[in-house]
Amino acid sequence: MAGAERGEEAALEQGLLAPEEPNQLIYTGDGSVDFSGNPVVKETTGRWKACPFILGNECCERLAYYGISTNLVTYLTKKLHDGNASAASNVTTWQGTCYLTPIIGAILADAYWGRYWTIATFSTIYFIGMAILTLSASVPVLMPPSCEGSFCPPASPFQYTVFFLGLYLIALGTGGIKPCVSSFGADQFDDTDPAERIQKGSFFNWFYFSINIGALISSSFLVWVQDNVGWGLGFGIPTVFMGLAIISFFSGTSIYRFQKPGGSPITRVCQVVVASLRKWNVHVPEDSSLLYELPDGVSAIEGSRQLEHTDELT
């Protein structure tokens, strides 16, 4: 009993426990830090305080993405006078690129920049791409002349270049947002706290709800605007929402929890493969605590968190 009291007093002296609530941790237990790199106070950061900014960012970004992709074939055929086969091929290639670029964003986030700066940087690229796309549909010199009877003059190489520059900047931008936003939202909940671990599951429900709200507005209202009002406005509205997404994201900076980059995931995957081959015949101890890479259960890679042992893949 006396030993427990001495341990509690030591923790109080180090600032790990609140004086008025000796058993309540002040700081998170998962290694998260604030924007300046200092340990974060549980009560004033993360959790649902930070989530509205992240959910707002995701909702606006998905609205912008689907506001472009849903009706893109129609724009290519009606405004750029592209053939049906060519338009479908261009849209498919662009969408495929949107699903490949997250590999770039994930590696940069995990190894170098962290999720916050990856989202911030690629959101800016995304917004620039949206602005260029809006200009290409609004400025007469960037659009081919209207059809005269059955003759529809094709877009010039310059007009194509401007349009596809904006389109592929969007593809690059989504590559930094798609793999990081959900993970950054999960970072706002401390895995070592059972209550916050439950709240994290609820966050993912709201996260996917935000995605569907953005997609719903795009697939209904924005498509109607593009077909009946004009493509300049139809692309301009998602551009404005992308700007709002960036503002929403930066607004929560002071209360976010950050995880430090843990090194290149490619390097770590290779390490696992090499270690598995080298230890093919090693006897697995019955005590799972001995399976950590270091005796104290701390990862050798700074910023990474240990995974619990499981028998599922034996």
Rank of each mutant, 00 (worst) to 15 (best):
F151H: 12
P153L: 06
P153D: 05
P153T: 10
S156T: 14
P157I: 13
P157S: 15
Y160F: 15
T161H: 07
V162P: 03
V162M: 13
F163R: 11
F163A: 12
F163S: 06
L165G: 04
G166R: 00
G166F: 02
G166H: 04
G166T: 02
Y168E: 11
L169D: 06
L169I: 09
A171R: 12
G173V: 00
G173N: 01
G173Y: 00
G173D: 00
T174A: 12
G175P: 04
I177S: 08
K178P: 10
C180L: 07
C180T: 07
C180I: 14
V181C: 14
S182N: 03
S182H: 00
S183P: 03
S183Q: 10
G185Q: 13
G185N: 09
A186E: 04
D187N: 05
D187I: 03
F189D: 04
T192W: 01
D193C: 05
D193Q: 08
D193G: 00
P194S: 00
E196G: 03
I198G: 08
Q199W: 05
K200I: 00
F204Q: 11
N205F: 15
Y208E: 03
Y208I: 03
Y208Q: 09
F209E: 05
F209S: 08
G214A: 01
L216H: 08
S218T: 02
S218Q: 05
S218Y: 04
S218V: 02
S219N: 13
S220A: 15
F221E: 01
L222G: 01
L222V: 13
V223M: 04
W224Q: 10
V225A: 02
V225M: 04
N228F: 03
V229K: 15
G232V: 02
G232K: 01
L233C: 03
L233Q: 06
F235G: 06
I237Q: 01
P238I: 11
P238N: 10
T239Q: 04
V240P: 05
F241M: 09
G243T: 09
I246W: 11
I246H: 07
I246D: 12
I247Q: 05
I247H: 04
S248C: 13
S248N: 07
S248Q: 07
S248T: 14
S248L: 12
F249N: 09
F249K: 09
F249D: 10
G252D: 08
G252T: 14
T253S: 12
T253I: 10
S254H: 13
S254E: 13
I255S: 05
Y256Q: 01
Y256M: 02
R257S: 00
R257H: 10
F258S: 07
Q259G: 04
G262V: 11
G262P: 04
G263F: 14
S264W: 01
P265L: 02
T267W: 15
T267Q: 13
R268V: 06
R268Q: 14
C270I: 13
C270Q: 15
Q271S: 06
Q271R: 10
V272I: 11
V273S: 06
A275K: 14
S276W: 04
R278W: 09
R278S: 10
R278M: 09
K279V: 09
K279D: 08
W280Q: 08
W280D: 15
N281A: 06
N281R: 08
N281P: 11
N281E: 05
V282W: 15
V282M: 10
V282E: 14
V282S: 07
V282F: 09
P285W: 02
E286T: 15
E286M: 12
